[in-house]
Computed example of a mutant assay.
Amino acid sequence: MNIYLLQVSWGVTIGVAVGALILLWIILYFIPIGLWFRAIISGVRISLLQLIVMRWRRVPPSAIVDALINATKAGLILNSDQLEAHYLAGGNVRNVVMALISADKANIDLDFNSATAIDLAGRDVFEAVQMSVIPKVIETPPVTAVAKDGIQLIAKARVTVRANIRQLVGGAGEETVLARVGEGVVSSIGSADSHKAVLENPDIISKTVLKKGLDSGTAFEILSIDIADVDIGKNIGAELQTDQAEADKNIAQAKAEERRAMAIAEEQEMKAKAQEARAKVIEAEAEVPMAISEAFRAGNLGLMDYYRMKNIQADTDMRDSISEPKEGGKDDDDKKKK
């Protein structure tokens, strides 16, 4: 019986101890005494009730207290209500405080409202402040342009930019800056009379581009544009002339083919006309015997007249046969003798 009572007492003691530990953990969770003590010794004036209320609002007290400690040690004056409101709005409290500290040390005019607005806009405000202190170098992709002499140039540029804090909200990003710089490079090379002038003085491109104010409306301030590399590409002018010459040749060939077709058609037409004339001659010759017969019947042609006409016709045929060259004439005989 005594052993049973002893076991029961030990079980009750262990249960009470576990319950006490759980209760102590709950109390320390909702009443962060250690965090409150750390804030007090760091110079941050915050009440224990405020930390408890933060728990109820589902705001981590450690994030607010750590941010207040960093700001206080850096000489900034912030209150917990501002940081809580920014956290509940979905902002990054630590980034905002670090950005304010960096801006204060670098003598950059940045207040709490501007920093929270930049953070809530989706930009990294701490990185923007760092970029204002240490400019960033952006390298453009290869930009292809053609000078007036028809030679293609391929240029690469390095753009040194600094973040413009006042235009971070609503300002264009790096892609816009790169697009504008590429457009300026193309315009500068295209306005050059010769590609040699660009190769001799590549700073012509950077000076021309800088004058155009390409950082207007962007979240950056362009400090410098340096031409990193310029390569010679194709001879676009020669290729265009070659293409034009090929097109002209094709046009001339087409016109010549058209004239040849017209000549062939005209030749065929003349042959048809010749055949038609020959048919008329044959038709007329066929009427001669009929006319002779009619003359005999009418007594307009006698027998002697007819024989005389036949003799004249035979003489004419003989002369025609003599005047025509014979195949295999004297030259052919000479060749056979040799």
Rank of each mutant, 00 (worst) to 15 (best):
T13A: 15
G15R: 05
F37E: 02
G43F: 03
Q7C: 08
V18N: 02
P32A: 01
I31E: 08
Y29E: 05
I41L: 10
V44N: 04
P32D: 02
W10H: 08
I33S: 04
L23G: 13
A39Q: 03
W25K: 11
L21A: 14
I33Y: 09
S9R: 13
V18L: 15
W36F: 05
I46C: 01
L24H: 06
G15P: 01
G15C: 10
Y4A: 10
V8A: 14
I31M: 12
T13P: 00
L6S: 09
I3P: 00
R45C: 00
S42E: 07
L21V: 10
V16P: 00
I46S: 01
I41W: 10
V18K: 03
I27Y: 15
R38P: 00
S47Y: 04
I14L: 15
Y29C: 00
G43K: 02
L6E: 13
I3T: 10
I40K: 15
P32F: 03
I33W: 10
I40M: 14
I3K: 11
F30M: 08
Y29M: 05
I40V: 13
L6C: 04
L35A: 03
N2E: 11
P32C: 02
V8D: 12
T13S: 14
I41R: 15
I33H: 05
V16M: 12
I27R: 14
I27N: 13
V8T: 11
V8I: 13
V18D: 03
A20G: 15
G11K: 11
P32G: 03
G11D: 06
F30P: 01
G43I: 03
L28Q: 14
W10E: 11
L35T: 07
N2C: 00
I3A: 13
L28R: 15
S9D: 08
L21F: 12
V16K: 06
W25G: 12
V18P: 03
W10N: 07
V44I: 04
S42V: 01
R45E: 06
L48Y: 07
F30D: 02
S9K: 12
G19Q: 02
L5V: 06
V18T: 10
Y29L: 07
V8Y: 13
I31T: 11
I31L: 14
Q7Y: 09
T13I: 11
I33P: 02
S9W: 09
